[in-house]
Amino acid sequence: MTLLQVRDLDVTFDVMPRGAWPWTKPNKLQAVSRMNFDLEEGQTLGVVGESGSGKSTLARAIIGTVEATGGQILWDGTDLRTMSARDRRAHRREVQMIFQDPLAALNPRMTVGEIIAEPLTTHQPDVSKKETRKKVGEMMERVGLLPNLVNRYPHEFSGGQCQRIGIARALILDPRLVICDEPVSALDVSVQAQVVNLLKRLQREMGLSMIFIAHDLSVVKHISDRTLVMYLGRQMEQAEARELVRAPRHPYTQALISSVPIPDPVREAARERPVLEGELPSPLDPPSGCVFRTRCPKARPDCARARPPLDEVEPGHLVACPYQEVISPLDTPLSEPAEPVG
């Protein structure tokens, strides 16, 4: 069953130019533009892209902390954007979020027990204290924390433990969708694997759907069923996770995948790869037509004319590039059969 359908989602911010008068018209910053995807119940969608490509804004639009300015977010077929404020608040228990900086996401003045219990006390205020304490203890055990640490404060924990606290808080209400906003990028590599595996295990046990945002393709490949590639707020490519890594079609995806370093200096030096040059253009003034054309190794003059449509080139494989082609398998650690993480 399809849990979440995102249709033509736009998020635009008004940005006041420097030194503007109050009556000056604000500049429009299009952070997310015409985003389309479906998320099936129990599946994981990976979202990758450079910093500033609008991944986090997409997540925040779905969870509702950022206002979407166009399109639809259909949850079980009902549009979240037209929901009443009260329904929306009640709906929040179904979608929870895990944050990038594990320590910053925990209130330093609250004990771990209070932090994990907060969603529970918000949505079920009539649950008794004893019941709450029991549930918090169970949840802590489930994420691999000692339940007798409930009265400790966040600053007494390591980064990995803090992230476990964040996971416990997100899962205590038994949500249907969990949005992970780069949950492991602030952690040590060894701890990353533990947290990713914990997430995978909990997803299986609780039947969760996930949106997993990262800029590390190896992590995304490991955890997600489908992967979506974003660049400057636009969708570049979307495919089944393994398929995307094995046969990337969009030049941007190819560049992303080829930029994953190989832990072998000889192979690393010998390999041929498309290189991305330059910086991400300003989202206040995106290039015309295809936004990637300014950095694309395969750009042609008519790329500037119109925004390329998202074509289904193969069943389930969508690419926003009319000149897409399968290139010879890239030499990357991702293309090896062995799993790079875990």
Partner: peptide
């Protein structure tokens, strides 16, 4: 982020 987490939870 902890304030955002609270908003997202519906507090």
């Amino acid at each position: 982020e902890f304030v955002e987490a609270a908003i997202a939870t519906g507090v």
